Computed example of a mutant assay.
Amino acid sequence: MSEGHDHAPHNHAGPAHGARVTAGSERRIRTVLIMTAGYAAVQAVGGWLSGSLALIADAGHMVSDAAALLLALIAYRVAARAPDAVRTYGFHRLRVLAALANGASLLLLVAWIAWEAVSRLREPSEVLAGPMLVVAAIGLAINIIGALILRRGDQGDSNLRGAMLHVLGDLLGSVGAIGAAIGIMLTGWTLLDPILSVLVAVLVVRSAWGLVSESIRVLLQAVPRGLDARAAEADLATLPGIAEAGHFHAWTLTDESSVATVHVVPEAGADPLALPALVASRLRERYAIDHVTTQVDPPGALVAGKH
């Protein structure tokens, strides 16, 4: 490939690596962490005393959320560290790892809820609907407050989105527990508790899988969503002064930053030093790629690099 040859100039264009980690996002997650951890203890005790699977499952969900939020806070602190000679892109990918852990933990919890629900369906157990309703109502209020706090933050932040999904999952869990409690009070049918727990789990799993799949996509350095790499490469070849473009690669660095590399061949008489800025400008304006590395090759190098 042409990268192995001496091709000059090789130039970078675009802002510094990395995305900002806002103090506001960190503060919001810290507040919701305290609320979540505190209520998880209350809910666990309430679920145990009332015999409610919906409350126990939601308490486990809250504990999982508290751990995930703590991981997100740690990721924020580490991600804020400046790049060094070894990690030249900085530590922002830790935020993606934290988002992946959030989604994965939520999927594991959904599997546990489903398992417990099947056991309860086979062997129904007594549920005290009154205490269950009170605890679930308190949980609903706390989750609504937490969701409002996170919703006002930067929704481009994958960790904030992950925290939001966890809180929404908790909110749905509280709604399910309230519905189960009211149904049991009216009908005495305790099977409503595990049934509604499964319904809540189904609603949560879709969002959790979306978070996991998007994190994996970023870690595998797939092209940013909505970008057609071949079309972008062909578009660059139409720029004035460029005869050919090839070896185009693009990937997401962080929530707010995309990176691309490309090789171009200048037209006869064109100034090769002007091409990197031209390429960077096109990719930034048309494809929202903010960091571009352009290598200018001599005629014939791109064809040779394909073999």
Rank of each mutant, 00 (worst) to 15 (best):
G188P: 04
W209G: 07
W189K: 01
R230V: 14
S213N: 13
L191H: 05
L239C: 02
V205I: 05
W189E: 10
A201G: 03
T238A: 12
I216T: 11
I195T: 12
V212Y: 08
T187A: 01
L220V: 14
P240T: 14
M185P: 05
G226N: 11
S197M: 14
S207R: 09
S207Q: 12
G241Q: 08
V198F: 09
H247G: 03
E256S: 15
D228P: 01
P224I: 08
V202R: 05
G188S: 03
V212S: 00
P240M: 01
L196Y: 01
F248W: 07
P194W: 15
G241P: 00
A222L: 07
V200M: 04
L220H: 10
A231W: 05
L199R: 08
D228R: 01
L196E: 03
H247W: 15
I242D: 00
M185I: 03
V204M: 12
P224N: 02
A245C: 15
W251K: 03
D193T: 14
D235L: 13
I242R: 08
A201E: 05
L239H: 03
W251V: 06
L211Y: 07
R217E: 03
L192A: 10
A208L: 00
V200W: 09
G241Y: 07
S213K: 15
W251N: 05
H247C: 07
L211E: 07
I195N: 00
S207E: 12
L186D: 04
E233P: 00
L191K: 11
A245V: 13
W189G: 02
G246P: 02
G226I: 01
I216G: 15
A245Y: 13
D228H: 02
A201Q: 09
R230T: 10
T190A: 01
I195A: 14
L239F: 12
G210Y: 06
V200R: 04
L239A: 08
W189C: 04
A222T: 04
G241M: 06
L253H: 05
R217W: 11
G226W: 14
S207V: 03
A250Q: 01
E214S: 12
E214A: 10
M185V: 06
E233F: 01
D193V: 03
T238F: 09
T187E: 04
I195S: 13
L211R: 09
A250K: 04
L239N: 09
A232P: 11
T254R: 01
A250H: 07
L203S: 12
A231Y: 08
T238K: 10
L236S: 06
A222G: 15
A231T: 09
L192V: 04
